[in-house]
Amino acid sequence: MSDPAALITVDDLRTIFRTGEEVARAVDGVSFSLRAGETLALVGESGSGKSVTALSIMRLLPMPPAQIVGRRIVFADRGTEQDLLTLTERQMRRIRGRRIAMVFQEPMSSLNPLLTIGEQIAEGLRLHLGLSRAAAAERACELLARVNIPDPVRRSGEYPHRLSGGMRQRVMIAAALGCNPALLIADEPTTALDVTIQGQILELLRSLQQELCMAMLFVTHDLGVVSEVADRVAVMYAGRIVETGSRAEILSAPRHPYTKALLGSVPRRRSARRDPAARLPAIPGQVPSAAQLPPGCTFAPRCGLAIPACTAARPALQPIAGAHAVRCIRWRET
């Protein structure tokens, strides 16, 4: 599934955590690719491995206990192809923040309380672009203006405690975009924000993405957010991608029982429900522990359609049409 135009190709990524005797397979064979300007949403519940996937790409997981055992992450940037997994730590540092940037979930703790806003944005600029203190400070103000922070000059001299969550997330975005990265990894950037601010941040990310022709890997568990930002969607469950396709395919015509159940458990207005009196459906059971994955299809224990064949062998990702693919042996019947 190698796409020659891809900016980044994650090929059979496997990340495990060793804790004593146990081996937890947090990411168990994840593959996807992403082109410039494209947004891929990585969707899944807590513990499905989506954040570990993101951190594996950045190689920011603490090792040990984490270990990336397979297989390669090809980053084709500016005409050169590199396997991020074979780079030295030093080479990796040159890519982090410069070519691949990251925005985190928790804007309240993402900023160092003892440095001013301006200093924190300038940090990456000085590190990667070698700007002088003054030039970096000036560019930091420009970046603040670009993420729509009013009065950037004054704000850049302030400390994070004076900013609201939404403002801090804007600052984080400004810091991430400082070096015009080719790929932005956004790890649940809107989860900690209230809904109106969420909308603003998504809008901001989208417009900046277009402006910079940047690829975006958007990690989220919020399907509402997916419908707003994603071009393509990959649904993760227990460390594997169970279904992938375009936004419309996944949201309107899901084939995997897990995707269906996930979409079914999104709360809707009373008038939009088929049966207004029914309780909100939930998926029975819970995500299996990454240390004890069930054999075969990892979703089988919770799946209403499971048959003995489901647990016999690990199902492969089967193409349905175009880019739409599903990891379920009974997808035709769903």
Binding site: R93, G97, A101, M102, S109, L115, E123, H128, M172
Partner: peptide, 22 residues
Amino acid sequence: ELQFVEAAEALGATDARVMRVH
């Protein structure tokens, strides 16, 4: 474990720099 440390690492800061500045 606070995110600003992780954020600094994601920006490409060296260990020494994270220790000194953050």
